[in-house]
Nucleic acid binder design. Structure first.
Lengths: 224, 224
DNA sequence: CCAACGACTATACACGCGAGTAGTCTGCTA
DNA sequence: TAGCAGACTACTCGCGTGTATAGTCGTTGG
């Protein structure tokens, strides 16, 4: 958003074109391709940003900020479920893919995003546990991290397995993904997969036996 | 393995070096870096394989075959849990990372591997359900695919978030990952996260109402 | 013994990349 | 109206890449 005046300039168009290009084809997208998408010369990137790295840094910051805004706009949506709402719009889908690319790429922006998600998930889960909607965990922090990794990772694999990402119909792709995974997700979250707790009990007793000071209490998390 | 005689040749060393290089630094690893790792000249790649693409194809086939062998060697291990056993050895960890890189890269090998895993998970789950160890799902195929995507995706995110992959101590990294995720996994699989089935019930009734011919039966999977 | 073959190296080529330079055009301001 | 600052382009450079060619060395079979 920011000033509408600024958004007409080549700088903003270049930035947006870079976000689209990075999301569509990954961060190996060349400056020339980005410039062509923006309808300007490649040298303009240097003029405005200095280097590809700084261009990307601005894209990262922009996407993270827009994600934050979009998240705040749709308040009271579970952190783990934000992704179910996000890609409904073209803008949301674009942010979504960009973020997934960042995680796939292993960049700092990806790490930042994951950490944000983990913090959100932890806060939301704590509230849900307090309200009696979610069962408590023996290690809430580990569960929040684990569930974020699974959610993001699942979408990432699904994205990576598609030969080409059509940014246009990404909402449709996302909708299909949701249709495929909603039932297994709800089943797993509601009913689990094991019929009894023998596996969990085994692990808990094993872990209790191997804790450095076997102080008896089993609910203590392992060292991180 | 194969013939020990063949494994002494530069071709095999080149292939193994490529597998290591691809696993450690991704498939952008240059031919010169691979050749240096193998202790040979870069031109030898062309002499033996013709092109980088064909070298990678042979790496893919080799890794998939070695994975298959390693899997058959450790029989009666749950398909979804194979990964808990795999990276205990250096060889297993190497295969593991290579496969994750393939998925991350979106290559055909990655797709093949995912499909293999899905088929294995489906077969294993069917058996476990029949033996009363695992609760049945309303869509077994969707659950198998979902759980594989989650398991692989979770490890992929974990891998991507690490700045550098030290192949040497990958078993240690993997062990740490397991230590972090084992408890949340078992908790989720045993106890779920929701305290009641209202979310699932809502979705089921919603889906039943929106099925093309509302034939009453709710357990039918959606169109894939 | 020697000729032929295959493993292997050194060097070169063409290409695409990010980055750098010089210069043009445009719009605002004094 | 003069001039100046900034947006923008065309062109160039060095580098690393995959690929291609020519040639060397050791081994092996007739």
């Amino acid at each position: 958003m920011s000033t509408a005046q600024e958004d007409l300039t080549g700088r903003a168009r270049l930035r947006d074109a870079a976000i689209e290009g990075f999301a569509a084809h990954g961060f190996d997208e060349s400056l020339r391709a980005i410039a062509a998408r923006a309808g300007v010369s490649a040298g303009l990137v240097r003029h405005h940003f200095g280097s590809k790295e700084e261009l990307r840094a601005e894209c990262d910051a922009t996407v993270l900020e827009r994600y934050r805004i979009m998240k705040e706009d749709s308040i009271n949506v579970p952190a783990t479920r934000v992704f179910a709402q996000l890609p409904s719009s073209h803008e949301g889908g674009l942010l979504m893919v960009y973020i997934l690319r960042s995680v796939q790429d292993g960049s700092a922006a990806g790490r930042t995003f994951i950490e944000n998600m983990v913090a959100e998930a932890a806060a939301f889960t704590a509230d849900a546990v307090a309200r009696g909607l979610v069962v408590p965990s023996r290690d809430e922090a580990a569960r929040a991290r684990y569930m974020v990794q699974q959610s993001i990772g699942s979408m990432l694999v699904n994205l990576a397995m598609r030969p080409d990402v059509r940014l246009d119909d990404f909402p449709a792709v996302m909708e299909q993904y949701m249709a495929e995974t909603m039932l297994p997700t709800l089943e797993l979250y509601t009913e689990g997969v094991f019929t009894d707790s023998s596996y969990l009990d085994q692990y808990l007793s094993f872990r209790a036996a191997n804790t450095n000071p076997p102080a008896g209490r089993a609910g203590e998390p392992l060292a991180r």
